[in-house]
Simulated assay, not measured.
Amino acid sequence: MPTPHSISRPAIASRPGRLRAAALASAVAVAVVALTGCAGLEYREDICSSGEYPVIAVGDTGSACVSDGEEPPAGYTRYPEGKVPQQVDDKWDVYWRTHTLDKDGNIIDAPDAG
Rank of each mutant, 00 (worst) to 15 (best):
V30I: 11
P73N: 01
D68H: 04
T98M: 12
I56L: 01
D102C: 08
A74E: 13
P72I: 01
G51W: 00
G40Y: 02
W92Q: 14
P80F: 04
A21H: 11
E81M: 11
S50R: 09
P73T: 02
V66D: 01
H5D: 14
D104K: 15
T3P: 02
S8D: 09
E71A: 11
S63L: 04
V94W: 08
D104W: 07
C65G: 02
V55K: 01
T3I: 01
N106C: 05
S8P: 12
I47L: 02
I7F: 07
A74R: 10
A23K: 07
S63E: 03
I108T: 08
Q86P: 08
A74K: 11
Y43S: 15
L101S: 03
L35H: 13
W96G: 05
A11P: 05
A29Q: 07
G17F: 13
D112N: 15
E70M: 12
S67D: 12
D46R: 11
A25G: 08
A11Y: 08
L35R: 11
R9T: 13
D90T: 11
K103G: 14
L35K: 13
S6V: 12
T61K: 04
G114C: 11
I56E: 01
A21M: 09
P54F: 00
S49F: 03
V28L: 05
V66W: 00
G82F: 04
V58C: 03
S6M: 10
G51C: 00
P111A: 07
S50T: 08
G40N: 06
G59P: 01
G59V: 00
L35F: 05
G105Q: 07
S50E: 09
R97Y: 05
T98A: 13
E42Y: 09
A39T: 15
G82Y: 08
R97N: 10
L35D: 10
T77D: 10
D89F: 14
E52Y: 01
P2Q: 04
K91Q: 15
W96N: 06
S14P: 07
G37Y: 04
K83C: 09
E52A: 04
R78E: 07
S8E: 13
R44T: 05
P80S: 04
G114H: 13
D102S: 05
R20F: 09
Y79V: 05
G40S: 06
G37E: 06
P111S: 10
P80Y: 05
D104S: 15
V84A: 04
D93G: 13
E70T: 08
Q87T: 14
A25F: 03
D89T: 14
H99D: 08
A27F: 07
P16C: 03
A11H: 13
Q86F: 11
V94L: 13
R78W: 01
H5T: 15
V66G: 00
T36R: 03
G37A: 09
H99G: 08
V88R: 14
Q87R: 15
P111C: 05
G40K: 02
D109H: 12
D109C: 09
Y43P: 12
A113M: 06
D60I: 00
A74C: 04
Y53N: 03
V55M: 00
G59T: 00
C38A: 15
V84Y: 02
S49W: 02
K103Q: 14
Y76D: 05
T36Y: 00
L19I: 13
V88Y: 13
I47Y: 02
A64M: 00
G51D: 00
L41H: 10
G59R: 03
Q86Y: 14
G40H: 01
Q87E: 15
